[in-house]
Simulated scan of single mutants.
Amino acid sequence: MLLGAHVSTAGGCRNAPARAADIGATAIQIFTKQPNRWAEVTIPDDEALAFRAAVAQHGVAYANAHDSYLINLATHDALLLDRSYSAFLGELNRANQLGLHALVTHPGNATDGDLPRGLAQNADMIARALEEAGGTVQVLLETTAGSGKVIGSRFEQLAEMIARMPGNVSDRVGVCVDTCHVYAAGYDLREDYDGVINQLADVIGLDRVRLFHLNDSATPFASKRDRHAAIGEGSLGDEPFRRLMTDPRFALVPKVLETPKELPENPKDQVTMDLRNLARLRGYLTSA
Rank of each mutant, 00 (worst) to 15 (best):
F51K: 05
D82Y: 10
I71M: 05
D77E: 14
F31S: 00
W38R: 01
N64F: 12
D124Q: 14
I28N: 00
R83P: 01
Y69P: 06
N93C: 15
A16L: 10
A27Y: 02
S84F: 03
I30N: 09
P35G: 10
L49F: 14
I23S: 01
N36K: 15
A39M: 12
P107N: 09
A110F: 00
T42W: 13
A102R: 02
N64D: 06
L98T: 11
A65I: 01
T111P: 14
G59F: 07
Q57K: 15
A39T: 15
L80G: 12
P17C: 03
L89S: 07
Y62F: 10
A110R: 02
A56M: 12
S68L: 05
Q97N: 14
D82W: 02
R19N: 00
H106Q: 04
A39I: 12
A78E: 12
V55M: 11
G118P: 01
A87E: 03
A56P: 12
H66C: 12
D82N: 13
P116F: 02
V60L: 04
Q29Y: 04
L98G: 11
K33L: 01
G118Q: 04
A123R: 03
L73P: 07
A39S: 14
A110Y: 03
A110E: 10
F31K: 00
R94N: 13
A39R: 15
A63P: 08
H106C: 02
E91G: 06
V104T: 13
A50Q: 11
A61V: 04
P116A: 01
F51Q: 00
K33A: 04
N72V: 00
A78D: 13
A39D: 15
R37S: 13
L73N: 10
A54Q: 08
D22G: 10
F88N: 10
P116G: 04
F88A: 06
V104H: 13
L89A: 09
N72Q: 05
N109S: 12
D114F: 07
R83Y: 10
E40I: 13
A123T: 07
T26Q: 06
D45H: 02
M125N: 15
I43C: 07
P116C: 00
M125Q: 15
A95K: 10
D82H: 10
R19T: 07
V41Q: 04
L92Q: 11
F31L: 03
D22F: 11
N93E: 15
P44G: 05
D77L: 08
F51M: 02
A25W: 00
R52E: 14
L49Q: 15
H101F: 14
F31C: 02
S84L: 05
L115G: 02
F51I: 05
V55P: 09
G99L: 04
A16V: 00
V104D: 00
G118V: 07
I71D: 02
H66R: 08
R37F: 11
A27N: 04
G113K: 01
F88I: 01
A120F: 10
S68Y: 06
A74C: 11
W38S: 07
A123H: 03
A18L: 13
T75D: 02
M125T: 13
I28F: 07
A21V: 14
L92A: 06
L73G: 06
A120N: 08
D124N: 12
A95R: 11
N96A: 11
